[in-house]
Amino acid sequence: MSTDIWVWIAAILTLGIFSFLYKDNPFYRFCEHLFVGITNGYAITFYWHRILVPSLIKPVSQGEKLYLLIFAFIGALYFTRFIPRLSWLVRIPIAFVLGYGAGAAIPRTIETSIIEQAKATILQRSNFLNLFDAISSIIIFFGVIATIIYFFFSTERKGILKHLAYSGIIFIMLGFGASFGYTVMARISLLIGRLTFLLRDWLGIIK
């Protein structure tokens, strides 16, 4: 059994969170609030020491990158929501963030979710080097088209579209089934990690 006080604290808190599996209880509530509080405290110190100080306060206090003050001012407008008369000013930083968000997301989405996926789906000579590759490639190609058709929203599902959309949902569910099994394995490894901590590091039952 461990003699390290921090291992004991970690083990007791782990059991506290696990106690939720039985039902909500004061021990779980204590651990939950502690967890939320600590992560918030950590986040504040992280943002202060790793972002605000090195990226804003340090260069500005040394007279460098003074243009950062403009962005700091825009960011500070978030705090105007605490002043009811000025709370409308919060929309200015939100507009910047939304504008940046859409601008950053659209090219990335076009590149990764459309162009790269389409490139990988196009049938080429290299897809037909052996029978297995050929069958796989044709199934993927048909699956992609059927799945895209499933996501047509502005057309009624009639005739061939209905059948293709139905095929699409079968492909989607097959994909989810595979993903489910894969992710469950990952989750079990998380549980094994916690149990290993309890049984080896804390109790010393397993070596």
Partner: peptide, 19 residues
């Protein structure tokens, strides 16, 4: 705002759901 930590957030939302 609850927290930006993934599992602390899950624990917090779980608490809200059961209460």
């Amino acid at each position: 705002y609850l927290t930006d930590s993934q599992f602390a957030y899950a624990a917090g939302v779980d608490g809200i759901m059961v209460r």
